[in-house]
Protein backbone atom coordinates (compact mmCIF):
# COMPACT_ATOMS: atom_id res chain seq x y z
CA UNK A 1 0.00 0.00 0.00
CA UNK A 2 1.38 3.40 -0.96
CA UNK A 3 1.22 6.37 1.39
CA UNK A 4 -1.36 7.93 -0.90
CA UNK A 5 -3.58 4.86 -0.79
CA UNK A 6 -3.24 4.69 2.96
CA UNK A 7 -4.11 8.37 3.28
CA UNK A 8 -7.19 7.92 1.12
CA UNK A 9 -8.41 5.06 3.29
CA UNK A 10 -7.60 6.95 6.47
CA UNK A 11 -9.63 9.99 5.43
CA UNK A 12 -12.52 7.78 4.33
CA UNK A 13 -12.55 6.15 7.75
CA UNK A 14 -12.92 9.54 9.51
CA UNK A 15 -15.22 10.96 6.83
CA UNK A 16 -17.54 7.95 6.75
CA UNK A 17 -17.77 7.86 10.53
CA UNK A 18 -18.95 11.48 10.50
CA UNK A 19 -21.24 10.95 7.53
CA UNK A 20 -23.10 7.95 8.92
CA UNK A 21 -23.34 9.39 12.41
CA UNK A 22 -24.72 12.62 10.97
CA UNK A 23 -27.17 10.65 8.88
CA UNK A 24 -28.45 8.80 11.95
CA UNK A 25 -28.63 11.92 14.12
CA UNK A 26 -30.54 13.79 11.42
CA UNK A 27 -33.43 11.38 11.95
CA UNK A 28 -34.08 13.26 15.21
CA UNK A 29 -34.55 16.67 13.59
CA UNK A 30 -38.15 17.72 14.20
CA UNK A 31 -38.72 14.80 16.58
CA UNK A 32 -36.61 15.77 19.61
CA UNK A 33 -37.83 15.46 23.21
CA UNK A 34 -38.40 19.23 23.41
CA UNK A 35 -37.77 22.17 21.16
CA UNK A 36 -34.51 23.52 22.63
CA UNK A 37 -32.94 20.07 22.58
CA UNK A 38 -34.16 19.45 19.04
CA UNK A 39 -32.30 22.59 17.97
CA UNK A 40 -29.18 21.67 19.96
CA UNK A 41 -28.92 18.14 18.58
CA UNK A 42 -29.49 19.46 15.06
CA UNK A 43 -26.55 21.82 15.62
CA UNK A 44 -24.38 18.86 16.49
CA UNK A 45 -25.69 17.04 13.42
CA UNK A 46 -24.83 20.01 11.24
CA UNK A 47 -21.27 20.18 12.55
CA UNK A 48 -20.73 16.47 12.05
CA UNK A 49 -22.22 16.43 8.55
CA UNK A 50 -20.16 19.51 7.68
CA UNK A 51 -17.01 17.70 8.82
CA UNK A 52 -17.99 14.69 6.71
CA UNK A 53 -18.32 16.94 3.68
CA UNK A 54 -14.86 18.50 4.19
CA UNK A 55 -13.25 15.11 4.76
CA UNK A 56 -14.82 13.42 1.75
CA UNK A 57 -13.86 16.42 -0.38
CA UNK A 58 -10.29 15.92 0.74
CA UNK A 59 -10.47 12.15 0.21
CA UNK A 60 -11.63 12.77 -3.36
CA UNK A 61 -8.77 15.18 -3.89
CA UNK A 62 -6.21 12.71 -2.54
CA UNK A 63 -7.63 9.92 -4.68
CA UNK A 64 -7.30 12.21 -7.68
CA UNK A 65 -9.32 10.30 -10.25
CA UNK A 66 -12.11 12.85 -10.68
CA UNK A 67 -14.57 11.53 -8.10
CA UNK A 68 -16.27 14.18 -5.94
CA UNK A 69 -17.33 14.09 -2.29
CA UNK A 70 -20.87 13.33 -3.47
CA UNK A 71 -19.66 10.39 -5.57
CA UNK A 72 -17.95 9.04 -2.48
CA UNK A 73 -21.00 9.53 -0.28
CA UNK A 74 -23.68 8.41 -2.68
CA UNK A 75 -22.13 5.93 -5.09
CA UNK A 76 -20.12 3.53 -2.93
CA UNK A 77 -21.66 0.33 -1.57
CA UNK A 78 -21.66 -0.79 2.04
CA UNK A 79 -18.50 -2.90 1.77
CA UNK A 80 -16.63 0.23 0.65
CA UNK A 81 -17.62 2.21 3.74
CA UNK A 82 -15.23 2.40 6.71
CA UNK A 83 -17.30 4.12 9.39
CA UNK A 84 -17.16 2.50 12.81
CA UNK A 85 -20.18 0.29 13.47
CA UNK A 86 -21.43 2.22 16.50
CA UNK A 87 -22.44 5.10 14.21
CA UNK A 88 -24.79 2.99 12.09
CA UNK A 89 -26.80 1.49 14.96
CA UNK A 90 -30.39 2.71 15.18
CA UNK A 91 -30.86 5.79 17.39
CA UNK A 92 -33.09 3.98 19.87
CA UNK A 93 -34.48 6.18 22.61
CA UNK A 94 -32.88 9.47 23.62
CA UNK A 95 -30.74 7.76 26.26
CA UNK A 96 -29.18 5.52 23.64
CA UNK A 97 -28.59 8.40 21.25
CA UNK A 98 -26.92 10.40 24.01
CA UNK A 99 -24.85 7.46 25.27
CA UNK A 100 -23.54 6.75 21.78
CA UNK A 101 -22.89 10.43 21.19
CA UNK A 102 -20.94 10.91 24.39
CA UNK A 103 -18.75 7.88 23.63
CA UNK A 104 -18.01 9.14 20.13
CA UNK A 105 -17.68 12.82 21.15
CA UNK A 106 -15.13 11.87 23.77
CA UNK A 107 -13.18 9.84 21.22
CA UNK A 108 -13.31 12.71 18.73
CA UNK A 109 -12.21 15.18 21.38
CA UNK A 110 -8.91 13.40 22.01
CA UNK A 111 -8.56 12.17 18.43
CA UNK A 112 -8.84 15.66 16.94
CA UNK A 113 -6.46 17.02 19.58
CA UNK A 114 -3.84 14.65 18.23
CA UNK A 115 -4.83 14.98 14.59
CA UNK A 116 -4.54 18.76 14.74
CA UNK A 117 -0.77 18.17 15.10
CA UNK A 118 -0.68 16.07 11.91
CA UNK A 119 1.97 16.84 9.29
CA UNK A 120 -0.81 16.74 6.73
CA UNK A 121 -1.94 20.37 6.82
CA UNK A 122 -5.41 19.76 5.44
CA UNK A 123 -6.17 17.07 8.00
CA UNK A 124 -4.70 19.23 10.76
CA UNK A 125 -6.89 22.14 9.64
CA UNK A 126 -10.07 20.06 9.59
CA UNK A 127 -9.14 18.63 13.01
CA UNK A 128 -8.62 22.08 14.51
CA UNK A 129 -12.02 23.25 13.31
CA UNK A 130 -13.73 20.05 14.43
CA UNK A 131 -12.03 20.15 17.83
CA UNK A 132 -13.69 23.48 18.59
CA UNK A 133 -17.07 22.02 17.68
CA UNK A 134 -16.59 18.71 19.46
CA UNK A 135 -15.54 20.44 22.69
CA UNK A 136 -19.01 21.90 22.67
CA UNK A 137 -20.73 18.64 21.72
CA UNK A 138 -18.96 16.74 24.48
CA UNK A 139 -20.03 19.31 27.05
CA UNK A 140 -23.62 19.00 25.90
CA UNK A 141 -23.82 15.23 25.74
CA UNK A 142 -21.87 14.76 29.01
CA UNK A 143 -24.39 16.98 30.76
CA UNK A 144 -27.19 14.78 29.45
CA UNK A 145 -25.45 11.58 30.50
CA UNK A 146 -25.22 12.98 33.99
CA UNK A 147 -28.84 14.13 33.99
CA UNK A 148 -30.03 10.71 32.86
CA UNK A 149 -27.74 8.80 35.22
CA UNK A 150 -28.62 10.85 38.26
CA UNK A 151 -32.14 11.88 37.18
CA UNK A 152 -35.09 9.55 37.63
CA UNK A 153 -35.00 5.80 38.06
CA UNK A 154 -36.41 5.44 34.56
CA UNK A 155 -33.74 7.62 32.96
CA UNK A 156 -31.02 5.89 34.97
CA UNK A 157 -32.15 2.46 33.80
CA UNK A 158 -32.52 3.53 30.20
CA UNK A 159 -29.07 5.06 29.98
CA UNK A 160 -27.40 2.17 31.82
CA UNK A 161 -29.04 -0.27 29.41
CA UNK A 162 -27.79 1.85 26.51
CA UNK A 163 -24.22 1.77 27.85
CA UNK A 164 -24.43 -1.97 28.36
CA UNK A 165 -25.52 -2.55 24.80
CA UNK A 166 -23.22 -0.03 23.13
CA UNK A 167 -20.07 -0.98 24.96
CA UNK A 168 -19.28 -3.89 22.64
CA UNK A 169 -18.83 -1.40 19.78
CA UNK A 170 -16.30 0.85 21.53
CA UNK A 171 -13.11 -1.07 20.85
CA UNK A 172 -13.47 -0.51 17.11
CA UNK A 173 -12.76 3.17 17.65
CA UNK A 174 -9.17 2.33 18.59
CA UNK A 175 -8.32 -0.43 16.13
CA UNK A 176 -5.24 0.17 13.99
CA UNK A 177 -4.07 -1.60 10.86
CA UNK A 178 -1.55 -1.19 8.04
CA UNK A 179 -3.05 2.19 7.15
CA UNK A 180 -2.21 3.56 10.58
CA UNK A 181 1.19 1.98 10.57
CA UNK A 182 2.20 3.65 7.31
CA UNK A 183 0.79 7.04 8.22
CA UNK A 184 2.06 7.16 11.80
CA UNK A 185 5.58 6.77 10.40
CA UNK A 186 4.94 9.80 8.21
CA UNK A 187 3.65 11.84 11.15
CA UNK A 188 0.22 12.04 9.51
CA UNK A 189 -1.96 9.66 11.51
CA UNK A 190 -2.77 9.51 15.21
CA UNK A 191 -1.57 6.76 17.52
CA UNK A 192 -4.94 5.52 18.75
CA UNK A 193 -3.37 3.91 21.82
CA UNK A 194 -2.69 7.42 23.09
CA UNK A 195 -6.31 8.38 22.43
CA UNK A 196 -7.55 5.20 24.09
CA UNK A 197 -5.78 5.87 27.40
CA UNK A 198 -7.24 9.38 27.60
CA UNK A 199 -10.68 8.23 26.48
CA UNK A 200 -10.85 5.43 29.07
CA UNK A 201 -9.93 7.77 31.90
CA UNK A 202 -12.38 10.45 30.78
CA UNK A 203 -15.31 8.07 30.21
CA UNK A 204 -14.64 6.23 33.44
CA UNK A 205 -14.75 9.50 35.43
CA UNK A 206 -17.85 10.71 33.62
CA UNK A 207 -19.73 7.43 34.02
CA UNK A 208 -18.92 7.35 37.70
CA UNK A 209 -20.00 10.95 38.16
CA UNK A 210 -23.26 10.03 36.43
CA UNK A 211 -23.81 7.23 39.01
CA UNK A 212 -23.54 4.65 36.22
CA UNK A 213 -21.37 1.57 35.73
CA UNK A 214 -19.07 0.60 32.89
CA UNK A 215 -19.93 -2.91 31.70
CA UNK A 216 -17.18 -5.45 32.35
CA UNK A 217 -15.85 -8.42 30.36
CA UNK A 218 -17.60 -7.44 27.18
CA UNK A 219 -16.79 -9.30 23.97
CA UNK A 220 -15.91 -6.62 21.43
CA UNK A 221 -17.36 -6.35 17.91
CA UNK A 222 -15.05 -5.66 15.01
CA UNK A 223 -15.08 -5.38 11.22
CA UNK A 224 -15.43 -1.81 10.00
CA UNK A 225 -11.73 -1.34 9.20
CA UNK A 226 -12.29 -4.05 6.59
CA UNK A 227 -15.62 -2.63 5.44
CA UNK A 228 -17.65 -5.20 7.36
CA UNK A 229 -20.69 -3.72 9.00
CA UNK A 230 -23.86 -4.46 10.92
CA UNK A 231 -27.08 -5.21 9.04
CA UNK A 232 -28.10 -1.60 9.47
CA UNK A 233 -25.66 0.09 7.12
CA UNK A 234 -27.10 -1.22 3.86
CA UNK A 235 -30.51 0.17 4.83
CA UNK A 236 -29.01 3.55 5.69
CA UNK A 237 -27.32 3.68 2.30
CA UNK A 238 -30.44 2.52 0.46
CA UNK A 239 -32.24 5.54 1.85
CA UNK A 240 -29.42 8.05 1.68
CA UNK A 241 -28.28 7.15 -1.83
CA UNK A 242 -31.69 6.66 -3.44
CA UNK A 243 -31.88 9.83 -5.54
CA UNK A 244 -28.35 9.93 -6.98
CA UNK A 245 -28.67 6.24 -7.85
CA UNK A 246 -32.12 6.67 -9.38
CA UNK A 247 -31.03 9.63 -11.51
CA UNK A 248 -27.36 8.94 -12.30
CA UNK A 249 -27.09 11.77 -14.86
CA UNK A 250 -28.66 14.42 -12.68
CA UNK A 251 -26.90 17.26 -10.87
CA UNK A 252 -28.55 18.66 -7.78
Amino acid sequence: MTTKEALFKYILRIGDTNLILGQRLSEWTGHGPFLEEDLALTNITLDITGAAKSLLEYAALVEGNGRTEDDLAFLRNDRQFFNVQITELPNGDYARTIARQVLVDCFDFYFYQELSKSKDETLAGIAQKSLKEVTYHLRHTSAWLERFGDGTEESHNKVQLALNELWQYTNELFEMNEVDEILIKEGIAVDLNVVKTKWEKHISDLVEKSTLIIPQNVFMQTGSRKGIHTEHLAFILAEMQALPRMYPDAKW
Binding site: F34, Y94, F148, G151, T152, S155
Partner: peptide, 9 residues
Protein backbone atom coordinates in the same frame (compact mmCIF):
# COMPACT_ATOMS: atom_id res chain seq x y z
CA UNK B 1 -41.55 9.94 24.13
CA UNK B 2 -39.74 13.03 25.38
CA UNK B 3 -41.65 13.05 28.66
CA UNK B 4 -39.15 10.98 30.63
CA UNK B 5 -36.30 13.11 29.22
CA UNK B 6 -37.91 16.33 30.46
CA UNK B 7 -38.70 14.73 33.80
CA UNK B 8 -35.14 13.48 34.24
CA UNK B 9 -33.81 16.97 33.54
Amino acid sequence: EGKWVREAA
